[in-house]
Nucleic acid binder design. Sequence first.
DNA 1: GCGACAG
DNA 2: ATCTTGTCGC
Length: 261
Amino acid sequence: MTTSSSKLNSNSTVLWTQTQAELLARRDPTDRLSFTPTAPFPGLTLIGGVDISYPRNTTSTAIVALTILSYPSLTQLYLQTHQIPITEPYISGFLAFRESPAYLAAFASLRTNNPELWPQVVLVDGNGTLHPRRFGSACHLGVELDIPTIGVAKNLLYMEGMTVDAKELKHMFKEDKTLGGVGIGVNGDVCAMAVRPTAGEGATNPIFVSPGHRVSMQTAVELVRCCSRYRVPEPIRVADLHSRVVVRQLEEELEASVSAK
DNA sequence: GCGACAG
DNA sequence: ATCTTGTCGC
């Protein structure tokens, strides 16, 4: 008798759904911040960003990058990568179970080596409340660390009950050049904002911002706008670019070790 | 019914 | 996420 991997995945999914429900009970949807939750955010000086890049031809390991930028200058104060084992597959709606361990390792290192740079808010590459169970990876990391987080996704996660789809949104931003953002409702809740990328009126491909933990929708959007020079806000952009550089190095090392034997 | 599904 | 070149435009 054989055991199919899809069967294993669906079993994990049941447990993971339960875990998400438990952690959701600990999520704080309000502004519980160490700075004033209104632009230009007096008191805010340290903002974090995290992202993960995966090497081609390998599924067991990845590179996580954590960066800390000063605010409002967006100067890079810290940028560290870690090679982390990846044990779980990517399953839509359960991204945190794949990536959160890597994030936790990165933050553990920061706490040990540069505790003075512990961020006041963290931008996460993924969704917050824009999620089938209102608990995306940004919420997950936020609750685990009890740190304010904001989810920023480059693509729309489709789910039942959504008021708009990606194509409609693109149309709306194209039609109305002054449109800055569109609320994304799911079964009566506005759980995200499609935000027109900063850098002009011509851009029509939005980013999707949703609160993670200890941040309101309003504050999340405002803050993302305030640290965006390009489509992707700086903290995530810096982490993304650097993790990609390091992933290339890892790929070369892997190639070398193969040809060496 | 088919397709759409963060990274 | 990753595989991938040039190209149109500011």
